[in-house]
Amino acid sequence: MHHHQGKFHSVLSSVSWRLADGYIQCRLSRPVKLTNQKRALYDLDKDYFLFLANGHAQYGKVWKHSQQPLISSHRKHITGPPEILRGSRAPIIMKMHGVLMLLAWMLTGSVGTFIASFYKPDWPNQTVFGQKIWFQVHRGLMILTVTLTGVAFCLPYFYRKGWSKHAGVHPYLGCCVLTLSLTQPVMAAIRPSSDSHSRYIFNWGHWGVGSVTEIIAVAAMFLGMRQSSLLLPQPWATHVLIGYVTWLTLFRFLLLMHRHIYIKKSALGPDDKQAILSDPSEHGCWGSFIKSLILAALALGNSGLLMALLSSIAEI
C-alpha cells in the first residue's frame, strides 16, 4: 500500500487495510473523475473489464500473481449498480488452442496411427475410391490431425501478437510437432511404389518420424496444461493424461499380442494353414471381430479421456 500511497497521495483518501483469511484487504477512496489527470489513473465513469489477480506478499513486497487473473466476460460500468459478473482465467482463443490440440493428439492422431500399425490386413478386399479402407481412413484422420495442429498452432501467436516468451519449452515442442507433422504428408506423397526395393526406407522413416512426433506431442500436452493462460486443474489433469498414455500403451500391447498369436497360428504346417484359411469362421471372422471391438474400445476410451479434459477447459 505504501508504494501506491506515495504515487497517488494527492488523489487517494480514507486509505485503510486489514489482514483477513490470509488476504490483505485494502479500502480507499478517490474521485470518479480527476481534474489533474495522470496517465496511470482512469476515470471511473466508463466501462472496463475487471481483472481479479491474487499473489503472494512478503516483508512488505507484493509479488506478481502466479496465475492468469480472473477476467470479467464483459465490460462493467464501474459506478453502475452492483452486478454478479461471470469471468474466466483463460482467453477464448487459448481455450480453442487447447481444444484443437487435444482433439488432434488424443483422438484423430492416435486412432489414425493405430489403423496404419495394426489394421492393414483387415478388410483386404474392400476399397473406397480405389484405395484400401485402412489407407483411406488412416490418410483422412492424419490429414485432419495435421490441419487441426496447424490451425491450433497459430492461435497463441494471434493472442500474444508474437512469440510466447514466458511459456518455457512448450512453444519449442509445438514447433517440432508442427514441422514433423508437415513432413509426414510430404514423405507420403513422394513414397516409392509398394514393390520398390527402396520402399523399406519410407516405411521406417514414416513410422519413425510419426512415433517421435507423437512422443513430443504428449510431452507438449503435459507442459501445456500447466501454462498460466490455460491452467487446467492440477494434479487432476496430469493424472488424466497419464491415464491416456497408459490406455494407449495397453492397446498397443493387446494388438501386438493379437498379431503374435495370429502369426503363430499362420505358421503351422501347410495343411493346417489351408484349413485355417478355408474355414474363416474359426479365426478370420473372430479375429476381425475382436480387432474391430478393440478399435472401438480404443476410440471410446480416448474420447472419454478427451471429453474429461475438454469439460475442464470449458469451466476455466
Rank of each mutant, 00 (worst) to 15 (best):
M1W: 10
F8D: 10
S13P: 00
Y23C: 04
R30C: 13
N36L: 11
Q37T: 06
R39P: 03
R39M: 10
A40F: 07
L41E: 12
D43V: 05
L44I: 10
L44F: 11
D47E: 14
F49E: 11
L52G: 01
V62Q: 06
H65I: 01
S73V: 03
S73E: 09
K76D: 02
H77M: 04
H77G: 05
G80V: 01
E83G: 05
I84C: 08
R89Y: 03
A90M: 11
W105K: 00
T108F: 12
G109T: 09
V111S: 04
G112H: 01
S117A: 13
S117V: 06
Y119P: 09
K120W: 11
P121A: 03
P124N: 09
P124K: 13
F129C: 10
I133K: 02
W134F: 14
L141A: 02
L148Y: 00
A152I: 04
Y159N: 11
G162H: 11
G162F: 09
K165L: 12
H166E: 13
C176I: 07
L180N: 08
S181Y: 00
L182Y: 03
Q184V: 08
I190S: 08
S196G: 15
H197Y: 14
H197K: 15
W204F: 06
V212T: 14
V212G: 03
I216A: 03
A219I: 09
M221C: 11
M221R: 04
F222A: 03
R226P: 00
Q227Y: 01
Q234F: 01
P235E: 04
W236V: 08
A237C: 05
A237D: 01
V240N: 08
Y244H: 06
Y244C: 05
L256Y: 13
I263S: 04
A267L: 13
L268N: 11
A275T: 05
I276G: 02
I290L: 15
G301N: 06
L306D: 02
L306V: 03
M307E: 09
L310V: 12
